[in-house]
Amino acid sequence: MEPLETTPAVRARMSKQSSRDTQVELALRRALYAAGLRYRVHRRPVRGVRREADIVFVSARVAVFVDGCFWHGCPEHATWPKRNAEFWRTKIEGNRSRDLDTDTRLAEAGWLAVRVWEHESAEAAAERVRAVVELRRAAH
Rank of each mutant, 00 (worst) to 15 (best):
G110P: 00
T22Q: 10
F70L: 08
L37T: 03
D103R: 10
V41G: 02
C69N: 07
H42S: 07
A85Q: 14
H72F: 02
R13Y: 05
R83I: 11
R30D: 09
V62F: 02
V58S: 15
D101C: 02
H77K: 12
P45A: 08
Y39T: 03
F57L: 01
A9S: 15
L28T: 10
V129E: 01
L100H: 09
L37V: 01
E120V: 05
A122W: 00
L28I: 08
A63F: 06
L28N: 06
F57T: 00
R89P: 02
K16C: 07
V56Q: 13
G73E: 03
R105N: 10
R51S: 15
D101R: 05
A124T: 12
Y33M: 08
T7V: 11
V129G: 01
N95P: 08
K16G: 07
V64L: 01
L112K: 08
L4H: 14
R130W: 01
T102Y: 09
A34K: 14
H42M: 09
P81G: 12
T79H: 11
P45M: 11
D99Q: 04
R130Y: 00
Q23D: 12
P45K: 09
A78W: 13
D67F: 01
S15Q: 14
E108R: 13
E134Y: 08
A122N: 03
R96A: 10
A53F: 03
E127F: 04
R11I: 07
V46E: 05
R47S: 12
P8V: 13
D103Y: 02
A113E: 10
L106Q: 04
T102W: 06
E93H: 05
P81S: 13
S121T: 14
R47Y: 04
T90V: 11
E127I: 06
R115E: 02
S19Q: 11
T7N: 05
S15Y: 09
W111Y: 02
R29T: 05
A35N: 15
V10N: 13
T104G: 05
R130F: 00
G94C: 12
R115Y: 00
I92N: 07
